[in-house]
Design a protein around this nucleic acid. Structure first.
Lengths: 191, 191
DNA sequence: ATAATTTCTTAACTATAGTCAATGAATTGA
DNA sequence: TCAATTCATTGACTATAGTTAAGAAATTAT
């Protein structure tokens, strides 16, 4: 399992033996059952995750309604908004499937970074890449309408549509389930 | 002017004398006239900015239409999506006012980080904070409708509404200028 | 296996955003 | 300062999303 992490990091840097052992030492693996809530709104978040297997969903509850913010799948990093800070989370993290993750926490991180400065450097680079991707998806979301968003999702993350229920996809796209149903129908008729 | 940067950084860390001189050495200030394009779509981006004075807007052109992604104002960091990478930018950066910025580039950054590792550490922390904020605004955008987005903007960035033209705000909110005009009318009538 | 629950689809209706066109207001440039 | 240009508002009309309600389909639990 840990080799998945090394494979991921090797996209960003040459993984030396030293780095490899640093990772292996400072990393531990955990499994969670489908349905497990990893973080509750109102709680302090003290863990971040690297997803090895499964799917994690972040969502908020507004007027009694769940609104999906993001779906995380294999090889994605899940860092709660306020990871390592003392402010409570405003959203939930839920396993929508059985999940295997590599877990990090601020204390462990700090120690590791002190001992292996190149890991902090790597962390910064990866944080910047993720940030760029986030900005990119935000831009795409803003500049498209619901139908385009769904088509884009079909193109970019087709497997996700098979893995998660449609009403969660709807809220992820910023619309109601009924609308997504109609959009799907519209698309089929257009073909 | 440089003291503004130190003031900003002091929110995240104790600014030691060493850090202060590191910043001062590795930083230079530039001014740009209103209307200046700092980055063109298709170009490689080689600079990032810390905004000391003025406003910078990022936008893309889609079907001949400008769509505003973000407005950056005082004390904000402008890092192009692909800053330091060799892939061309997919969007524009434009000064919507006369602008004073502190400029960074990857080469300078690299040298500075080598010499002052605590600055890289600080960079990572700030990157994470910005990331969290981005995720937060994305979540807010997704979970609200155009009217709520405008009301939220009125609350969060009231000065911005005075500073930039309304059709740019409309595209920033993901709607057409005519719709924003109607939303404003609706809000006034509700009061 | 069957009942209970949840999810998805459809329909009728309402509210709001998009489109196109016209006009008035504000800004910019010579 | 006046003309030209850009920007904001309004109206009429269209398209699409939200709402409510009902029923079908799929999933889950006993």
């Amino acid at each position: 399992m840990k080799s998945e992490i090394l494979k991921y990091l090797s996209k960003y840097t040459k993984v030396t033996n030293e780095l490899e052992s640093a990772i292996i030492k400072s990393t531990f693996i955990e499994s969670f059952k489908k349905g497990t809530i990893l973080l509750n709104a109102g709680d302090i978040s003290n863990e971040c995750y690297f997803l090895l297997k499964g799917c994690i969903r972040s969502y908020i509850i507004e007027n009694g309604e769940e609104k999906t913010i993001e779906f995380y799948t294999e090889e994605q990093v899940v860092t709660p908004f306020n990871y390592g800070k003392s402010t409570p989370s405003n959203y939930y993290l839920e396993c929508t499937e059985n999940v295997i993750v590599s877990v990090g926490n601020p204390k462990l991180e700090k120690e590791t970074f002190l001992q292996y400065p190149q890991l902090e450097s790597l962390s910064r680079v990866i944080a910047e890449v993720i940030m760029a991707k986030n900005q990119d998806s935000f831009a795409k979301f803003k500049t498209s309408n619901p139908e385009e968003r769904y088509l884009n999702m079909l193109k970019e993350r087709p497997e996700l549509i098979q893995r998660v229920p449609q009403h969660q996809i709807a809220s992820y796209l910023g619309i109601k389930p009924e609308s997504l149903s109609r959009i799907r129908k519209r698309i089929i008729n257009k073909k």
